[in-house]
Amino acid sequence: MWSEAEQRELEEILKKYPTKRSALLPALYLAQREKNWLDDEDMEAVAEALDVPITDVHAVVGFYTLFRREPTGKHMIHVCTDLPCALRGAEEFYLRLTERLGLPPEGGTTEDGLFTLEAVPCLAACDKAPMCQIDLQYYENLTDETIDTVLAQLRAEAQQETKA
């Protein structure tokens, strides 16, 4: 399942650690990169590459929130609604966003499969609330207008890709 480039990348990662097992989280990120989630085959490939029992790989994947076991939208949107952000209106910001994306209050994936929206705990940007991460990149001091502009850009990019 590893491409040649990924294989090389994995070898570089392994050089950083005295044990193969230490490369487990980086290897899982690598396996997850292309489609945003991990299927059984991905996890077996990681287990095999690092000589880690497959049950251990499952245990680790289940523990960490940034690994996903189900298909998601093309882009992951994580809005922080923890206390410091909530004091600056992040809960209302998040709820309005779910409405505009046609999602229930608990978030989820948009009908077009473009976005998966989740409310998450603190992302270390409390002074710039409301904020979110899209595919782990920071977007801060947001308003409804600025987040809509960002999402419109991502929609346009996706359309371009489909045409190409």
Partner: peptide, 20 residues
């Protein structure tokens, strides 16, 4: 990969070694 507990130093070590 997303776990507050890993700020606790021994949990961090386990995480760095590739464990929960």
């Amino acid at each position: 990969a997303g776990a507050y507990i890993c700020g606790e130093e021994t949990a961090l070590l386990n995480s760095l070694e590739g464990y929960r």
